[in-house]
Design a protein around this nucleic acid. Sequence first.
DNA 1: AATATATATGAATATATATTCATATGGAGA
DNA 2: TCTCCATATGAATATATATTCATATATATT
Lengths: 108, 108
Amino acid sequence: MIDIEKYKIAEKHMLDEDTIFNVSNLYKVFSDETRLKILNSLLSTELCVYDIAELLNMTHSSISHQLKILRDMKLVKARKDGKIAYYSLIDDHIEKIIKIGVEHINEL
Amino acid sequence: MIDIEKYKIAEKHMLDEDTIFNVSNLYKVFSDETRLKILNSLLSTELCVYDIAELLNMTHSSISHQLKILRDMKLVKARKDGKIAYYSLIDDHIEKIIKIGVEHINEL
DNA sequence: AATATATATGAATATATATTCATATGGAGA
DNA sequence: TCTCCATATGAATATATATTCATATATATT
């Protein structure tokens, strides 16, 4: 131990392991360009898999895999209309998180 | 194209590739448990490498590697006092980002 | 019923990266 | 100067994961 006072202050403010795990997992979602593009596009409107794939110029499979991750993380939900699945955002924090990120990089 | 109207709305709101790249890189920092713990501990006080390693119960090498990433991302800075390097946060957004993350997972 | 279409998903591959180990650097004290 | 000590860093390894490819499912259309 080099600086006991500072160590103790920091120790007191430590987050528990579960919180760290969950928050890091949340930000893992935003750390992938494809998922970030999907989430950002869903800020403006609901979209189907096909159109997201066109919009991002990627395969449907790839988009579908990422949407599954977003569903599992409870960030998006799907509304089925016949064979079309319209995806939309569940969570209010998504917009805030993207905005703070953009704000941050614009200040560099 | 399945739903032209929605497609066009989303197309208009697309972020440019650079922004997506930079924001996803920013959140990649927060997606690792070790870096998240380091950043969170630095919210309360500056800390040296040795004490961070003790606090997180990890090797100095590992912490040092992660601190380099945080330095390169301009999120932390080091103040040298003799052979001791005291690290502190550069950026205001770090606190907001951690808080929104914690808020989000607490609401699930 | 048969076919086409939109989406979902399992497995494989390729790539990224966190940690470890070995070693280097640079300051403090004997 | 020699040697501890705190930190930094390069290389190797192990692990995680994004995309691709093949295939499955489910609805719509003929």
